[in-house]
Design a protein around this nucleic acid. Structure first.
Lengths: 334, 334
DNA sequence: CTGTTAGCGCATTCAC
DNA sequence: GTGAATGCGCTAACAG
């Protein structure tokens, strides 16, 4: 807990002016002589520049926030978010930017997210897995910071740069795969409809039915990573025995469906076909192995980070949106 | 992207001085008249105080960093870390402090952690799941920021406030439980020994053997959340068939052991007894349900956060260390 | 209750 | 190549 050392002290110790010391430290031009003595002084005194002062003077922080309107616990459970954050961090570090993950108060994620968006001292914000929320959306429009969405934002805020996976197509191919093999009543277990991804996947599910001239089965709305998913799936199968296939919007939900089916003595895929989403690690750990829709999470997240990096470097946006393809991985469950 | 509004502009618009405007905004004394007009101006102009300037002037940030020397992906996979972060966030928010999770570069978590410890602009740092690393440890001793460890730091840095679970006792009761029921060769699958928790749990395992006058079985060292755990467990069982019990230092490892045993046709607990650690959600989802050591992660993490909050508020440390009890939860696997 | 005055620690323009 | 001067936006004594 020593008293923090200032640039002034370094300059004095090195026998030069503050500006020269500053130049040396930031790699500007200076005589070999100055460079030598300043570096010496920095080492001797253990000088570490004060971030706040630098920020104030430079008018930039070299920090980028990653925010996702979820409680920390929820963030950690969702494989999409985990992979996205990992990829984004890597990209930002490589570009010389420090990522900062905004942690919300589990007691009120939305409110604290709002607070973060407003008062953060960062150069830009990358929003992962945004949700529909009138207050948040309004906030965005008046925000004065570069913003990138990983996972497209709601229509009302369409003018923000984003990257995404082609969720509509993902829902479509999953459902089509089921219908093509003769399934006639395809239920969908989806994310809450405040999630854009859930809306899109649902749209794909509907479209496949429309094209086939069939009525869609029931839509069960619950969280992608819902703890009560097994119970919900069991209820679905019980309430509507005609359901012969389920399109689950996440592998977590698909696995839960598998459990529920097993408990009711229904064989997969014979009696019930199941398609998941994400192609997560869980997909190959269950039996039968999951047929699921793969999305390139790391890739699209990196693209999102790149968008931010370019904006911060050049002052202008690269091309967007960038929408990455989803594809069906056929295994044993459908 | 409008030009940021400054306090000056607010003051001018309100027809008062900067200091009065500042007072009103920060809840100081002022006439109803001033309060009225300043608030009006703030609203009209959409004033948001500049964090860097505030920090510089106040000499504090009201932000606390949470750092853990892991890649983001690893952080997200470890249930201890997830729960700890959730609990810490909540406590900090409640105290009016903003938590900031330091995200490391997956390509080099240690280096970026080091960087963070050094250059962060926060009032204090909470370190979760520290590991033994000479460079990091040295850094700590010269750090000039309040520091709290969730999970005790290495002996070399013993003088830092910390909270922890009683891991030695946890390892002891797990092993004793196995020995008491007549198991004679108890292997241990543990975390890498750079983890303090792994060292401590191993110590408990050894102590139980010493007390019983028995030779400990083999110690298998690998990550708590290792992907290859099932293979490692299989190898262990094959290489040393006399092993009739396994103390796994995490539920993830215990579940892997279950899988390996099943694959080799060994019944649990008849042929092989297994005890896990964490009492995580996974413990009751497997069959047989896991006997495991519970540790109050949220509780101890909150205590860690409280330590920091008190230090920041009062300038002095509360009493530490605070070591929370671990206890055995007996289910079906041992 | 209010305005004036000084910084907080650093970057940077401008003459020298 | 270098130093003096100025400002980033805000807070906090200090008089009044």
């Amino acid at each position: 807990m020593t008293e923090p050392v200032t640039l002034d002290q370094v300059a004095r110790a090195a026998g030069v002016s503050r500006s020269t010391a500053s130049r040396v430290i930031n790699g500007g031009v200076a005589s070999a002589q100055s460079i030598e003595s300043v570096n010496q002084a920095v080492a001797d005194l253990g000088f570490v520049p004060n971030r706040a002062a630098q920020t104030l003077a430079r008018q930039r922080t070299d920090q980028v926030a990653i925010v996702t309107p979820e409680s920390p616990a929820a963030m950690f459970v969702d494989p999409f978010i985990a992979i996205a954050i990992d990829a984004i961090s890597h990209r930002l570090w490589r570009a010389g930017l420090q990522p900062q993950l905004a942690l919300t108060d589990p007691a009120d994620p939305i409110a604290t997210t709002r607070r973060f968006l407003h008062h953060s001292n960062v150069d830009g914000i990358i929003v992962v897995h945004f949700i529909r929320d009138p207050q948040l959306e309004e906030l965005l429009t008046e925000l004065e910071l570069p913003l990138v969405f990983v996972g497209r934002p709601p229509d009302s805020t369409r003018d923000f740069p984003y990257v995404d996976a082609d969720n509509v197509h993902g829902g479509y191919i999953a459902t089509k795969h089921l219908l093509d093999q003769g399934r006639r009543r395809v239920a969908c277990m989806g994310g809450a409809l405040v999630r854009i991804a859930a809306v899109d996947r649902r749209a794909g599910w509907l479209r496949a039915h429309r094209e086939a001239g069939l009525e869609p089965g029931p839509y069960v709305e619950l969280d992608f990573q819902a703890a009560g998913a097994t119970a919900a799936a069991a209820e679905l199968l019980r309430a509507d025995p005609a359901v012969d296939a389920v399109f689950a919007q996440s592998d977590t939900l698909a696995v839960a469906t598998l459990h529920a089916a097993a408990a009711q003595g229904r064989r997969v895929p014979e009696d019930l076909a199941v398609v998941g989403f994400d192609d997560s690690a869980a997909a190959t750990r269950v039996s039968p192995r999951l047929t699921t829709v793969a999305q390139p999470i790391a890739l699209l997240s990196s693209a999102g980070a790149d968008l931010m990096v370019e904006r911060l470097r050049t002052g202008r946006w690269g091309s967007w949106p960038r929408v990455f393809p989803t594809e069906l991985v056929v295994r044993d469950s459908a």
